[in-house]
Design a protein around this nucleic acid. Structure first.
Length: 487
RNA sequence: CGGGGUGUAGCGCAGUUGGUAGCGCGCUUGGUUUGGGACCAAGAUGCCGCAGGUUCGAAUCCUGUCACUCCGACCA
């Protein structure tokens, strides 16, 4: 194609992905108008285009939560110190990163209030009041809100001091039910990531040292970013009855006994937007999975002042919009080349070009974002064929970017049986997932991290026996573990 | 919290030996354009991050501070 000059200019605007991945990431966030910095460190302004992605994520996930029987609630953003302190492990885990409110106006508060870093304690306090009988169970609550964790190092979407998320908190009569719920929601997350975000994930429990503060078991979905670093895309925790005991939550069973209910919590955050950027983006900008793209199709009229062009462009727009496809017609005065570059930067999955030549030939041009491939689509009278062709293009983008991400993960997944193998794989092929056997000891986790830089990400459900011995100590291995450098 | 880098117009940057601030893009108006970031003309825009200090005079020198950013340790 004769667009090499176009490519060159684009590359000037954002840093090349392979030159400096971190800078590339920041350039995308800014140039695609996703977010801006604010005057408070670590707190970002999520701009309309970025927020629209979040709204789409919310819409899809919320529907899945409702399908699985959950109800939305809203808890206060403040937690009294005494309440936070009720569960020992939990408070120890979060204490280093909580923000405190000490004054109301000029008056010092008698008890300082923590700005929620997570809401287990608030839910527990409430559950203690509303759960009395086995008939009250299960309680399946979720809330969409923001939380605050006073992080030291911050990056837009990946790690901010305030972030948006959803946190599900559920109570069940039995351990079996609670474990089932924990895994069900992990599956909901995994399915959402793979189908809607076109992002392959590895599912499995975290190692004990990596569990959520206060949890019996923590499960995660782990994705591999384009630079070979791992990103935890969602977590689901099984709490047992630890919080219930600490907060005095009991219910009367059928045989009139006091029992402690079993609890879960699970969450995903605006970090998913960072995951989308780093999974699918390229040197021309963002690449959005169609399911969450604020604009799925952009129509760019060419020589739009020529008779008939804008009229036809509007017809195409109406057809797509009427069929629920999020479409934008850009009839601004900017040149077509400018528009091409702009919507590529913003990751719009499909572009339709329509100009005098096309109209003459009864067609339009469709360009898929991930490979910039052009195809002609015939324009029939009712535009039915056009609509169908566009829908097919959207699906084509979805499956293609999934395959690209999967291929990247394949290329950057290494089976290793010794520390030396880990080091040479990372050195030769770059960062990635290391699959290696583990004896189960925290000492080996620490040692591997120290010697190779990779930490445990999760213990995949899909186990395989690479060797009988732990990659680190050589003692009998218990599990295959995914290791990696994490965001 | 340790180590590096950067703060000057909306954005990206220049600003030498201290002498009172400039370039590109963007923005506004008018016109010509439109198949890969168009062109011409005329405009508008500055607490030089903030606070002290040195000096007749500071964007420039000194001290402090804050923010952003990258690399580590900790974390969704």
């Amino acid at each position: 194609m004769s667009n090499t000059s176009g490519d060159k200019k684009l590359v000037e605007k954002i840093t090349s992905r392979d030159t400096d991945f971190a800078q590339w990431y920041t350039d995308i966030v800014k140039n695609a108008d996703l977010a801006d910095y604010s005057s408070v460190k670590g707190c970002m302004i999520i701009r309309p285009y970025g927020y629209a992605i979040w709204e789409n994520i919310q819409k899809i996930m919320d529907a899945r939560f409702k399908e699985t029987g959950h109800e939305n609630v809203y808890m206060p953003m403040f937690i009294p110190e005494g309440l936070l302190n009720k569960e020992k492990e939990h408070v120890e885990g979060f204490a280093p990163e909580v923000a405190w409110v000490t004054h109301g106006g000029s008056e010092e508060l008698t008890e300082r209030l923590c700005v929620r870093p997570t809401s287990e304690t608030l839910f527990c306090e409430h559950y203690a009041k509303i759960i009395n009988s086995y008939r009250d169970l299960p309680k399946l609550y979720n809330q969409w809100c923001s939380v605050v964790r006073w992080e030291k190092t911050t990056r837009p979407f990946l790690r901010t001091r305030e972030f948006l998320w959803q946190e599900g908190h559920t109570m069940h009569a039995t351990a079996e039910e609670a474990v089932e719920e924990t895994l069900r929601m992990l599956d909901v997350y995994a399915d959402f990531c793979e189908k809607d975000l076109a992002m392959p994930v590895i599912k499995g429990p975290k190692t004990p040292s990596d569990k959520f503060a206060g949890a019996v078991d923590t499960y995660a979905i782990e994705a591999l970013m384009h630079d070979g670093k791992a990103l935890q895309a969602g977590t689901s925790h099984y709490f047992g009855d630890g919080f219930a005991r600490a907060f005095g939550i009991t219910y009367k069973s059928k045989d009139n006994k006091d029992e402690y209910p079993h609890q879960t919590s699970w969450g995903t955050t605006t970090r998913l937007i960072g995951a989308i950027i780093m999974t699918h983006g390229d040197d021309n900008g963002l690449v959005l999975p169609p399911a969450v793209a604020p604009i799925q199709v952009v129509i760019v009229p060419v020589a739009q002042h020529k008779p008939g062009v804008l009229e036809k462009a509007h017809e195409l727009y109406d057809k797509l919009a009427a069929n629920g496809i999020r479409t934008k017609l850009d009839d601004s005065d900017n040149s077509p080349g400018w528009k091409f570059a702009e919507y590529e930067m913003k990751g719009v999955p499909v572009r339709i070009e329509i100009g005098p030549k096309d109209i003459e030939n009864g067609q339009c041009v469709a360009v898929t974002r991930h490979n910039r491939e052009k195809t002609f689509i015939a324009l029939d009278d009712m535009l039915e064929g056009f609509k169908t062709a566009v829908q097919e293009k959207l699906e084509e983008v979805r499956s293609a970017i999934y395959e690209i991400a999967l291929e990247n993960r394949r290329k950057h997944t290494y089976n290793c049986t010794t520390i030396d193998e880990i080091n040479s794989a990372l050195k030769e092929k770059g960062d990635g997932f290391v699959r290696a056997m583990w004896c189960g000891s925290e000492e080996c986790e620490d040692k591997v991290k120290e010697l190779t830089g990779v930490g445990t990400r999760c213990i995949p459900f899909e186990q395989e026996k690479l060797s009988d011995k732990c990659v680190c100590c050589g003692r009998p291995a218990k599990k295959l573990v995914y290791w990696g450098k994490a965001y």
